[in-house]
Design a protein around this nucleic acid. Structure first.
Lengths: 159, 159
DNA sequence: TTGATATATGTTATAGTATATCATAACAAG
DNA sequence: CTTGTTATGATATACTATAACATATATCAA
């Protein structure tokens, strides 16, 4: 699977598709995609960049929602907990999931210049990681790969 | 390479070997392993568990070192920057490196029950991650794998 | 040795991230 | 209707990290 985020694409439909997909899944799984939750998802989808909780909060405030930290964190917990968004631990920030329809180990390619984030899919089960875990008797419940570097748009432009 | 941390081992020599190894490398590379830095390394080595900066600070304080946050963070920056320790982003915490003598992509197996951490080595270059990055034109400078789950000592004991 | 430069530490203050807690509202099930 | 559940509102606080500036210590060239 290809990461998206560094290649030009029709971002309008990209957003629309994602929202529709999440709405559909929520309906199927009996989850409530409430106004705040959907709005936070849209905010995240607006760009392929990680956003901090307080950045999101500022947008929510401008939209007339209550702007206390828990508002943002609760919505983010919902989205992350149900696989509609991910937290980039390295940045203490969040991104909408690019592959919301399937279970996967996300692999983030984080550009340290423009801060855009592309999400690929790692295949740890065929990596030495899975072998190590197996040998150690460790049961992996969830995992994430975070890679920092330079994206093609920034390579050459900025060192 | 095997992760360590979940199997019983002679932890005394484990610590001693690590300290000696780091001392040797610092000498070779012209790095100053000052008292605070070495002490923080020892504190991290004391257990195969991630420690927060403020936990470390508390120990430093008990040892008579200055106990302002920058003291701990500077020592940690030194250790992490030179590959003698790693930051576990998911936990906002730090661990001594188990393989301080080689460049590697660390893969952490984090037990959510006992909070012990084992460090293995990922081989992303043969993972789909490397292929995705290559296809996207993304240059990976550093990466980390963080896997959360249950270690063999806790499996069965606690759900 | 001395002085210049770089590196490391001491200290205060503050910025940034996240959660605990309690109160209220909306709604469905019994 | 009242009980249980889920979501939201609101306040306060805890936890994590860094900026900024002063002082000290090491390193090295002249």
């Amino acid at each position: 699977m290809q990461p998206i985020g560094f290649k030009s694409h029709d971002h309008g439909t990209c957003i629309a598709h994602s929202v529709t997909s999440v709405q559909k899944q929520c309906a199927e799984r009996g989850l409530q995609l409430t106004p705040v939750r959907q709005r936070v998802l849209e905010i995240l989808l607006a760009k392929h960049q990680a956003m901090g909780a307080y950045d999101i909060l500022a947008v929510l405030k401008a939209d007339g929602f209550s702007a206390q930290p828990p508002v943002a964190y609760r919505a983010l917990d919902f989205l992350v907990g149900n696989g509609f968004a991910h937290k980039i631990e390295r940045l203490n920030a969040f991104v909408a999931c690019s592959h919301p329809s399937s279970e996967h180990v996300p692999a983030f390619l984080i550009c340290r210049v423009c801060e855009n984030v592309a999400e690929g899919i790692a295949n740890l089960s065929e990596d030495t990681v899975a072998a190590s875990a197996r040998d150690a008797g460790f049961i992996i419940e969830r995992a994430v790969v975070e890679a920092e570097g330079v994206c093609p748009n920034c390579d050459g432009a900025q060192p």
